[in-house]
């Protein structure tokens, strides 16, 4: 009966709700990666950071009973992963992309190892705010139940634009990303700037992971993240290293990821797995359309190893 009341509108409403829900990890990881890449280094290991964050958040929430402590623990675990990445990349002649791949494997392995006892118990999860209370349609209300972390991410994007463009911290960070020599000439340690940027990036990616285990899907298991981290890294390229564009791109990817479950909810189960691959296919298509072999990308930090 509830389904019948809005008919096929269920699908767009569910996609919208999914976009608001599923986009949060994309948003946090891409904002974090955005900061790291603006400092001139790429951290491909955020997939591992995301899974570590999800595990730490769930474990902490289960042990302390406070999901917010879980979010904090996830951020700290992410920052530690960032510290590991940055301190290895700080050594001469070490390739940051390869270290990222290593941390992707290490972070996932460590999270599975430590998270083994967490698969059974259920931990308290994060609260959400009902923006859909005005509506009688249950699907609309479900779609507009918005998690606080999402709102924090929405606020973070313009804040980062401001911080990167006007603060001293942002200027120094961008200098390190555009020309390491210039930053050195100004008397800054490029390694230290990038270390901080990678740690902040890891912190945000960890928080993105906490959303996975503490809100949606809201449990810990080994199949929790399948490539959201790497999709978010690709998304930063698509968003041209601009935090606001990262936000819109996250919504787009969230919507694409919600397409499969939304269609399944109205009984279209044909091609469920293909629809689940929609974010990856979309990422690939966007990269094909927007990249060019002839020029470097607009807005790309000049020191970045993937654009050089």
């Amino acid at each position: 009966m509830a389904d019948g009341s809005i008919g096929w509108w269920v699908v767009p409403v569910a996609v919208l709700g999914g976009a608001l829900r599923v986009s949060t990890p994309f948003l946090f990881v891409s904002l974090g990666e955005c900061i790291t890449e603006r400092s001139g280094r790429i951290n491909l290991g955020l997939e591992g950071t995301l899974v570590m964050g999800a595990m730490c958040a769930y474990g902490t929430s289960y042990l302390t009973g406070s999901p917010w402590l879980g979010v904090l623990a996830a951020g700290c675990a992410g920052a530690l992963m960032g510290l590991l990445h940055a301190s290895i990349c700080g050594l001469p002649r070490v390739n940051d992309i390869a270290v990222g791949i290593a941390l992707m494997l290490f972070g996932t392995g460590l999270a599975f190892y430590l998270g083994k006892p967490l698969i059974e118990p259920s931990a308290p999860i994060l609260p959400a705010i009902d923006f859909g209370a005005w509506s009688d349609v249950p699907q609309v209300r479900a779609a507009l139940r918005i998690n606080v972390l999402f709102l924090a991410g929405v606020a973070l994007a313009p804040f980062l634009i401001w911080a990167l463009s006007t603060t001293r911290w942002g200027l120094v960070l961008r200098t390190a990303g555009e020309s390491a020599d210039a930053a050195r000439a100004m008397g800054y340690s490029v390694n230290l700037i990038r270390l901080r940027a990678t740690m902040i990036g890891g912190f945000l990616a960890g928080i993105g992971g906490s959303f996975l285990s503490l809100y949606y899907p809201g449990s810990w298991n080994e199949g929790l993240s399948s490539g959201q981290g790497i999709t978010a890294v690709a998304l930063v390229i698509f968003a041209r290293w601009n935090p606001m564009l990262c936000f819109w791109a996250s919504l787009l990817f969230g919507g694409a990821a919600a397409l499969g479950p939304a269609l399944q909810s109205v009984g279209v189960s044909q091609g469920y797995y293909l629809f689940n691959a929609a974010p990856y296919i979309l990422t690939l298509l966007i990269m094909i359309v927007t990249c060019s072999p002839k020029r470097t990308l607009v807005g790309a930090p000049a020191e970045l190893s993937i654009t050089r």
């Binding site: 399948s226 390229i237 060019s292």
Partner: peptide, 25 residues
């Protein structure tokens, strides 16, 4: 990578998830 300048590390990893989805499908 060669003809469109798409980073091959990221595209090859995305293709893993696409292959897995195709296999499951």
């Amino acid at each position: 990578q060669h003809y469109r300048g798409v980073n091959e590390t990221i595209s090859s990893l995305l293709l893993v998830y696409i292959a897995l989805a195709l296999l499951n499908h």
